[in-house]
Simulated scan of single mutants.
Amino acid sequence: MAAHLRPSSGYVAGVDLGGTKLRAALADLNGHLVAEDVLATDPRGGVAVAAQIDALLRDLAVRGGVDWSDIRASAIGLPGAPHPTTGTIGLSPNVSELEALDVRAELTRRLGHPVLLDNDVNMAAAGERWLGSGRTHRHFVFVAVGTGIGMGIVLDGQLVRGARGAAGEISYLPLGTDPFDPANQVRGALEEAVAGAALAARYRAVSGEQTSVPDVFDRAAAGDPGARAAIDEEARFIALAVVAVTAILDPEAVVLGGGIGSRVELVEPVRRWVAALSADVPVIKTSQLGDRAGLLGAVAVARQEVGAHPGPPAHPDSAVRPVATQPYRNTSFETAEGR
C-alpha cells in the first residue's frame, strides 16, 4: 500500500476551463479535496479569464484554510491544444482571446508557482484513469461529445499528447460531413456532424421542431421515432470515429463522456454500430465521473507534477464527491485584473 502524506506537506490546484463554466478545486497531496467551486467563465476571455482563475483559486484557499504559499502547483485543462514549449493555445474557438495569450506565462506570473496546461479532454482522460472508467485499463481512449468532440489518449498508462499537444483532435477526422468544404474546416468535419447543434438540427429536420439536446433524449425515451432516429445517427457517426481510432491505437476500452457522450442511452447504439463495422471491438463504456472528470484529472496531473503518489486517495469518495461549494454563480465579471 502506498504511503500517505501529511496534509501539511502541501496542496495542489486543479482547474477545468470551459467556454461557459470554470471549475476549480484545491486538494492535498493525498488527493483529498478541501475546496471546490464552479462559476460562469468570463466571456471576455484571455487576460480576464486568467484573472478569474487567479481570483477563484485564492478564494478557494481562504475557504479551505490553505496558506497560499503551500500550493505547490496548478494544472489547468483548457478547450484547445496547448503547445508543449511556447505555452500558447491553438484550436480554441470556445474561449475568446485565448490563442493570443501566453497562458502559461500569464498564470505562472499571477499564481507564483508552477502551472501545467493541457487539453481539457486530456485532463478528463487523466481523471478517468485516476478514479473513473479507465482505472482498470492501461490502454484506453476517452471520447468527449458535447458542444464539440475531442479525445484523450492513454497508452501504457500514460497520456499521449503528440508533437504539438494536439493528439486526439478527432474533430478534424474527415467523417460525417464534407471535409473539403471550408465551412467544415474551422471546427472539423466530424464535429460538425456530432456536436450538440448537429444532433438538434437532425431532429428538427424530421420533426420541424426546434428543441434542446436534452429534450431530444427525453423525447426518444418517450418513444418519439424522430428523436430515436436522430440519436441513432449520432451513434453511427461516433462509431465511425471509434473504429478509425481503434484501427490506429488498438485501445482496450473506449470511454464515452461529455454532455452527449455520457448519456447512457448512447452507449448501446454505439456498440451496435461498432460491431457492425469491426470484428475486433474494444470495451465501450460510459464515463463514471461525468462533468467532473476534467477537474479531477487536473488535480491528478498536478499531484503527479509535485511527486505525489499517482494512486487514488485512501477514501476515493473524498475526491469524487464534491466538497463544500457555493451555488453555481453567473458572475458579473467585475473581477479586478491588476494582480
Rank of each mutant, 00 (worst) to 15 (best):
G134E: 09
L289F: 00
L240R: 09
A308K: 00
V216W: 11
E106Y: 04
V121K: 07
P82D: 08
A298D: 00
H83V: 01
G188R: 01
R263Y: 04
A124M: 05
S92L: 00
G10H: 12
A205E: 14
L33C: 10
W273D: 07
A239H: 02
A220C: 09
R164H: 14
V245L: 08
R44Y: 12
E99K: 11
L199G: 05
L116H: 10
V270D: 00
L249P: 03
L111W: 11
T325S: 15
V15Y: 12
D67F: 02
E337Q: 15
G134A: 01
R204D: 07
T246A: 12
I238Y: 04
V154A: 02
L159G: 01
T246L: 07
G257W: 07
L17M: 13
Q326Y: 12
S171M: 09
E97S: 05
D178T: 09
L296V: 11
A24G: 09
P179K: 02
V121R: 02
Q304K: 13
A201I: 08
G311C: 03
E97H: 14
G168W: 02
T325W: 14
R263S: 12
A13L: 10
D54W: 10
E252K: 08
T136A: 13
V242W: 08
P310F: 03
P114A: 00
N330Y: 14
L57A: 01
S318T: 15
Q158P: 01
A40E: 15
E192Q: 15
A298V: 01
R271H: 08
G77M: 05
V301L: 13
A13S: 13
E169N: 03
A73Q: 04
E97G: 04
A24N: 09
A195H: 10
